[in-house]
Design a binder for these strands. Structure first.
Lengths: 243, 243
DNA sequence: GTCTATATACGGATAGAC
DNA sequence: GTCTATCCGTATATAGAC
């Protein structure tokens, strides 16, 4: 899998997922027509990410948002009850979206090494696809409602567990060396996190997300002591890397 | 070197460094007695970090700061011209402090491997010693004045150069394997950065900064192919991946 | 040097016309 | 559904007494 393939897979279900995840926010929205909601809410989200990622959510005024979206102050409030709602809706959308994609991409049973590579790439490609959301989410997590904060913590814990169980399986199979599971998982996440936190830096260095994915995988695998000579050849396990 | 030793080394020159770095902010401070400045400015900095790291600098009101420091609203403004000054002073202090310590700790000529370990530890121990400053600096960098923003970028570039030259020397000496210098430096920084961004997580897992330093060093060294405990990476194999 | 009281502006949110 | 006009709380910053 590379990013182009991933992007195409995701793009087809994007709109429909947006609609599904809307259900939760639906009660706080005064607008009737779904089509109008989708159109304007997407405008609002996009503008919020743009402004907030430049100067912070707290520093973004509703007047800023009105100007950027072209929707008047009064009309904006038909799409949420208060400013913080936007933040929580964005986070809720992001988590549901990520969870859904993750379930799709890593559902198939695979061998640990393949699985590790798939999860690293999925995580990385998701953060590329939704970079402004990931960046925003990281920077503004302080101000989430208790509900969304808890949900974020849970999602984070789930991701940890996915990584841990893969590493564990690999250790059992003898594919991976001995290592500290907590620190290793945290390191993988730190490397992936850097992609969306420092994206403009990578872009200016002309490093693509595919290159970065390969780098992270190689970096992590040398820590795990994966024997490259053996892992690459049998069973075509290495397909994901060689393309 | 471990963290306890580092901490003792740094602590002795801390106060005097604070005084030195004060010179720059001096003109915007209306107070005469240096002793008073030091006492109250440290109180102000401490309180700012405490409040801002909880809810963000923008969300911290001057009334919050007044309450936390025990200094009245009016008196606070004798120590800076406006709220943003606090942010810029904090950042200026941090950069000057870090630069000074770095110069002291890595001055001595060493061999690349030793040097790499020293720089990783120094960077990590500094971020432990000044964790609230590092966290604050990362989170609030958006709102720095152009001057402090530029200074931050320069300091970052200097750090990159230090790492790059060490890796380069190691490559020339044949101590390190072939690797992508830009990505490798970025990876080291990402791992170190995670320490101050997720510090409470590490603390709750009872991971000490010394343990983390050893982990990062070992992680990076296995990427560079210097870990004697593992099989050497065959020539050429990883080229397809790292480029 | 530090305090209280206050000027002034700006931000979130709503009312009510269209 | 969307707009303009406006309310009102809160924020930064200052004035001026002590």
């Amino acid at each position: 899998m590379n990013y182009d393939i991933f992007k195409k897979n995701v793009a087809v279900s994007e709109k429909e997922m947006f609609l599904e995840t809307l259900a939760e926010s639906r009660e706080s929205i005064r607008i009737k027509k779904e089509k109008t909601i989708v159109k304007n809410l997407q405008k609002i989200f996009k503008a919020t990410l743009k402004i907030s990622n430049k100067k912070g959510f707290k520093a973004m005024s509703m007047r800023d948002l009105s100007r950027e979206t072209g929707i008047s102050l009064g009309a904006l409030y038909a799409y949420f009850e208060n400013k913080d709602d936007i933040l929580n809706m964005l986070q809720s959308q992001r988590i549901l979206f990520v969870t859904r994609i993750f379930e799709n991409e890593i559902a198939r049973a695979q061998r640990p090494l393949e699985k590790l590579r798939t999860v690293i790439k999925t995580h990385l490609f998701l953060s590329e696809f939704m970079q402004p959301w990931f960046y925003f989410s990281f920077m503004e997590s302080k101000n989430l409602s208790p509900k969304e904060k808890q949900r974020t913590i849970n999602a984070e814990r789930d991701l940890d567990k996915i990584f841990e169980s893969i590493l564990d399986d690999g250790k059992m199979d003898g594919v991976f060396n001995d290592f500290d599971p907590v620190l290793t998982v945290e390191a993988i996440k730190a490397l992936n996190q850097d992609w969306y936190l420092k994206r403009s830096k990578f872009r200016s260095q002309k490093i693509s997300v595919d290159q970065y994915a390969d780098f992270v995988i190689q970096f992590v695998e040398s820590h795990l002591g994966v024997d490259k000579g053996r892992a690459a050849i049998p069973f075509g396990v290495d397909k994901t890397i060689s393309q």
